[in-house]
Simulated scan of single mutants.
Amino acid sequence: MSSQEVSSQPFRWHYADFDDGNFQIRGRTLFFVVVLFSIIIVFTLLFIYARWICRFSHPPPPAATSAPHVGRDPASVAAPQGLDLATINNMPIVLYKNSSAAAGKFTEAECCICLGIFGEKEKVKLLPQCSHCFHSECVDKWLTAQSSCPLCRAPLQVDSPV
Rank of each mutant, 00 (worst) to 15 (best):
L126F: 04
S100A: 03
E120F: 01
V42N: 02
H58Q: 05
A102H: 04
I39C: 07
L127G: 05
E120W: 08
A154F: 09
N89G: 11
E122I: 01
L143K: 02
A67Q: 15
V124L: 02
C111L: 06
E108T: 11
P62W: 13
C149V: 00
P59S: 14
H69M: 07
S136A: 11
I41T: 03
L85K: 04
T107V: 06
Y49C: 02
Q129F: 07
P61G: 05
V70P: 08
V139M: 00
N90V: 11
L85D: 12
D84R: 12
I93N: 00
P59F: 15
A64H: 12
T144C: 01
K125A: 11
C54Y: 12
A78Y: 07
L126V: 07
S57H: 01
S100P: 00
A78T: 07
I41N: 01
W142H: 05
P92M: 10
H58W: 04
H69P: 09
R153W: 14
I40C: 10
S57T: 02
S99P: 07
F106S: 07
S99I: 13
I53S: 14
A67R: 12
P128L: 06
V42A: 03
S38W: 15
F47A: 01
P128A: 07
S147F: 13
P62I: 08
R51D: 13
I48K: 13
A109H: 15
H135W: 01
L85Q: 05
H58T: 11
A101V: 09
P80Y: 08
P150K: 04
L143M: 08
D73P: 09
D73Q: 05
S66P: 10
L127D: 05
R51S: 08
Q81S: 08
M91E: 14
V124H: 03
C111E: 09
C138L: 01
F56M: 00
L151Q: 09
P150Q: 08
L95S: 12
I53D: 15
A63G: 06
L126K: 14
C111H: 13
L115C: 11
E108S: 15
C149I: 09
K97W: 01
E137M: 01
Y49R: 06
R153S: 04
A86I: 10
S57F: 14
Y96M: 09
A50T: 01
K105S: 04
T107P: 00
I117C: 14
F118Y: 14
L85P: 08
C54G: 07
V42M: 07
D73N: 11
S57M: 10
P128G: 06
S57E: 02
S136H: 00
F47C: 04
P62A: 03
A103N: 15
V77F: 11
I40D: 10
C112K: 03
L46T: 10
